[in-house]
Design a protein around this nucleic acid. Structure first.
Lengths: 149, 149
DNA sequence: TTCAGTGCAAAAACTTTGCAGGAGG
DNA sequence: CCTCCTGCAAAGTTTTTGCACTGAA
């Protein structure tokens, strides 16, 4: 299924002297299968409900590792919880978030890479990533109702 | 001291039918005096240590109001806590965050407003704001040490 | 064999909520 | 005088930590 991602993760773990454990690959599997953005606890609950017995601590720890090796991206849309999304076979993109219903849309804008590079250089940073979120109100008719962010 | 901001806040409260209470202006005062970005709880602790007796709930509530009327901006730098910063007499700006020591630098880039406008229009959103954060490593020599984000 | 990784539960950090009393309009 | 706001503490949410045990190398 996610053979390429699994291989990439395995090599990363090896290189960084982290142990290769079945739990870690189980988390990877669930993470890549998740549609859209997810929180660590959400993933943990989903795994539990599928009768996995991976612990909460392991899920949190593994997601951190997966973000370190760029298989996942860490996001934060202003709800004080960390969200992740799969990077696998995806291009860089930015987010538009509806402040009423929580709908998240994506867009790409090549110019942003240039801005990142120039700002980092000017201020003496080595950039490792960025997040660009636009907040607003979407055109969805029954928008107010579904507070399902 | 912050006469103009106080007046603006007063008018906002009136317009929105919120009551005008001394506690709210006390929070405003501390918020505008705060150097840089701060969390709600940080401000509460600071006020307590200055023997203010405004409650935690009131601080959280008032900061929300101050963000609604644009005297403060709400930020989130990926630490799962809401941060605020004074907007008063400040131009729009973006942030560069050091992932080691938490140093935050600012920069401006007029092009970003254009990108925001175009993306919102294309996806049918009415934009109410944006956040653009670049993460990276700063050039500070003793950077690893001070984890004082 | 060794120690990083795991499961579990408890603690921590930040925020929200419920309630009773008090003050703004 | 009617409620909105306040203070307080308790509860809620998400994440981290401590500890003893297990299993990868």
């Amino acid at each position: 299924m996610h053979a390429a991602a699994i291989e990439e993760f395995r090599q990363y773990l090896k290189k960084e002297n982290h142990r290769i454990t079945p739990e870690r690959f189980e988390v990877l599997d669930y993470a890549l299968d998740y549609e859209g953005h997810f929180g660590a606890d959400e993933l943990y609950v989903k795994m539990k409900s599928n009768s996995s017995n991976v612990s909460r601590a392991t899920v949190y720890n593994t997601l951190e590792l997966l973000a370190s090796c760029d298989l996942l991206s860490k996001r934060n849309f202003g709800e004080n919880k960390t969200r992740y999304e799969s990077n696998f076979n995806r291009n860089s993109h930015e987010h538009l978030i509806c402040i009423n219903c929580g709908t998240i849309k994506e867009f790409s804008e090549p110019q942003i890479e240039v801005i990142v590079r120039e700002a980092a250089e000017k201020l003496g940073f080595v950039s490792t990533g960025h997040s660009f979120n636009i907040f607003g109100k979407c055109s969805n008719t029954n928008c107010k109702q579904n507070k399902n962010v």
